[in-house]
Design a protein around this nucleic acid. Structure first.
Length: 586
RNA sequence: GGGCAUGUAGCUCAGUUGGAUAGAGCAUCAGAUUCCGGUUCUGAGGGUCGGGGGUUCGAGUCCCUCCAUGCUCGCCA
């Protein structure tokens, strides 16, 4: 149990003792202090209770600390300022907690008491296209969120809602029928790059040519009604795209279950039917619509969510409604998370509203759109290649690896070090991919993000290489001292002994992992975890600067080795929740 | 015109249910080093938290208003 959770229990009991049972469950407003002179944690509830109790905050604080007994793990609480209650952890408690973390595979963090079924919908590329920079953030952020929730013990369904349906497909099939019919009947008749080219050409035709547009829409209807030729072409193209996507997912170590838009095809009619039965449906200009509460168009009239087009076809709103209904009723999800760019926030609000009014989305289920901003180039505009094209994801990742490789090669040369080629390749791959992931995750996802190879690959600052270096350095201490950290614990019986200021700072930070993970799981902001790991690395470097480890006298030497080991273990665990693997040497 | 998001140091960004003196990193300048990978550590300068009002013991955070930028607003997804 984290120190905050432990303190919260004690405050609850103290409040009941001091002011009566009606105060049970009052939030003690606990937080880590921002200044060590105020102790380790502060409780801010005395101020917030002033009105309710009709007393001065300091008097309330006095009564609370008279009623609370935290002597097992804290120094006597102190009141400061307008009524802050300051708490400082006892050294004996810190030492015992560190010991427990050291010997536990989960670093002393228990799984949640009530595991949920949680859908995380992320990545979602389109069939017959290559993954590009637009899929980067969803893929990386979604994976990190899924990993955190899995670590907490939830059942997570990682769903890849690929775009394998709809008008775009009708366009492509119609166009291929004209220019390259073999692609509709033979596997891999075209390579993926050519498909993308045809796709772009089809898009141009679609926008300019009314007859082509109508033929495309008919092709979609054909697909949706099970036309044999259209289905065969579709299957071939999906297979080919799927293999391409999988290469990227393998490279990034991301596991996903494909369940594309087509999966819900057989549910679409019943979604519309149910909405009709519920009296939510209205026809307008030949389209079946649900008119939304709180949304108006340019003329100030109510805005519809169209669920069936005038030609009888369905659209993405229908599919999203069907998917949400399926996830709730069949998957039995308690929480459905959509990691999709911020541009679609109103779409999700609208879909959620309709699902709520239809009774599919109830208060027992949490549906959340987790938005993120654009990836921009260093000029502040949407990231493009020099030629002005969309950046392919495989090129982007390859460049990160290439640049990492150039750095290592140069560093080895300057240090007069030689390493085998496979070592260099492995380090470059890990550093390059980790840097791309970490740069994205370390930023608050809601804002746009400026993509810079130079910054993400820098060894200084809040970057993956800085964190990886700290880990490698700790591993190096082990090698130098001839210590096998994994066998180390069972061979010793010394406990951690904290004496130096930098040891205390490091130790207290190490205890904060559980709270950070809980925060990330609730707020779905992986940058909080990055911040924590960066601060951990800084605090370790300060400790390392001030305290000798291998050259220290016993029992301090063993104690410090344990701090090193625990730091490494925490880094490895934290980074793994971000989808990043560590290196023993680099 | 409506909706949503963003606006914090020269640059890139944190800022946790409203809490104590608004924080990092980079860059700049000045220092440390008997060194376990110095790819480190210490320190300094640098702020009208877009502007203005309000709410209260207390506002970067909540409310109103204005400004700037981006995205979006019926049959693409």
């Amino acid at each position: 149990m984290s120190a905050i959770a432990l303190l919260a229990e004690h405050f609850d009991r103290a409040l009941i003792a001091a002011f009566g049972s009606e105060f049970a469950g009052t939030d003690p407003l606990l937080a880590a202090t921002n200044n060590p002179k105020f102790g380790d944690y502060q409780a801010n509830l005395a101020m917030s209770l002033a009105k309710r109790l009709q007393q001065k905050p300091r008097d309330i604080a006095t009564q609370i600390i008279a009623a609370i007994d935290v002597s097992d793990f804290c120094d006597p609480p102190e009141i400061a300022g307008p009524g802050f209650i300051n708490l400082r952890l006892k050294t004996s408690y810190l030492e015992a907690q560190l010991q427990q973390m050291l010997t536990d595979d989960r670093l002393g963090i228990p799984p949640v008491a009530q595991p949920q079924t949680i859908v995380v919908d992320f990545s979602s590329p389109n069939i017959a296209k290559e993954m590009h920079v637009g899929h980067l953030r969803s893929t990386i952020i979604g994976d990190a969120i899924a990993r955190v929730l899995e670590f907490q013990g939830h059942t997570v369904l990682r769903l890849n809602h690929v775009g394998d349906w709809g008008t775009q497909f009708g366009m492509l099939i119609t166009y291929l029928r004209e220019v390259y019919p073999d692609a509709l009947t033979q596997a891999d008749a075209l390579d993926i790059g050519d498909l993308v080219t045809f796709y772009k050409q089809a898009k141009v035709r679609f926008d300019d040519d009314e007859a082509f547009k109508e033929a495309s829409r008919q092709a979609v209807v054909g697909l949706q009604t099970g036309d044999r030729e259209a289905r065969q072409a579709w299957t071939l193209l999906c297979d080919q795209s799927r293999r391409e996507f999988q290469k990227i997912y393998d490279q990034l170590d991301i596991r996903l279950e494909e369940r594309g838009e087509s999966f819900y095809n057989n549910d679409l009619a019943s979604v519309v039917q149910d909405l009709d039965t519920l009296g939510l449906l209205q026809e307008d200009n030949g389209a079946q619509c649900v008119f939304l509460d709180g949304y108006t168009n340019k003329d100030g009239n109510p805005l519809p969510l169209i669920v069936q087009k005038s030609n009888g076809g369905y659209n993405y709103a229908t599919t999203d409604l069907a998917a949400l209904r399926y996830r709730i009723t069949t998957d039995r999800a308690d929480r459905v998370i959509y990691v999709v760019d911020v541009g679609q926030s109103s779409h999700f609000e609208q879909v959620f509203q309709v699902a709520r009014r239809a009774g599919w989305l109830t208060d027992a289920v949490e549906a959340q759109h987790v938005p993120f901003g654009l990836v921009q180039g260093e000029d502040g505009k949407k990231l493009k290649t020099r030629a002005g094209d969309t950046v392919r994801l495989r090129d982007l990742l390859e460049e990160a690896i290439d640049r990492a490789k150039a750095d290592i090669t140069q560093r080895l040369a300057s240090e007069d070090r030689t390493e085998p080629q496979d070592f260099i390749d492995h380090v470059a791959t890990v550093v390059g991919l980790s840097s791309v992931k970490y740069a994205d995750l370390s930023q608050n996802r809601t804002s746009n993000y400026i993509f810079s190879y130079d910054k993400m690959l820098a060894m200084q600052g809040n970057t993956a290489p800085y964190l990886l270096y700290v880990y490698a350095r700790i591993a190096s201490i082990g090698r130098k001292g001839g210590i096998d950290f994994s066998a180390f614990l069972s061979a010793i019986n010394t406990v951690v002994i904290l004496t130096e200021p930098t040891e205390f700072v490091l130790a207290k930070h190490l205890l904060g992992l559980e709270d950070v993970i809980n925060t990330v799981a609730t707020e779905l902001l992986p940058n909080r975890l990055c911040q924590y790991l960066f601060e951990l690395s800084q605090k370790f470097n300060q400790f390392y600067d001030q305290c000798s480890v291998l050259q220290a006298e016993e029992p301090q030497r063993t104690s410090r080795l344990q701090l090193c080991y625990l730091t490494a273990k925490t880094l490895r665990q934290g980074l793994s929740l971000l989808g990043i693997t560590v290196l023993q040497r680099m």
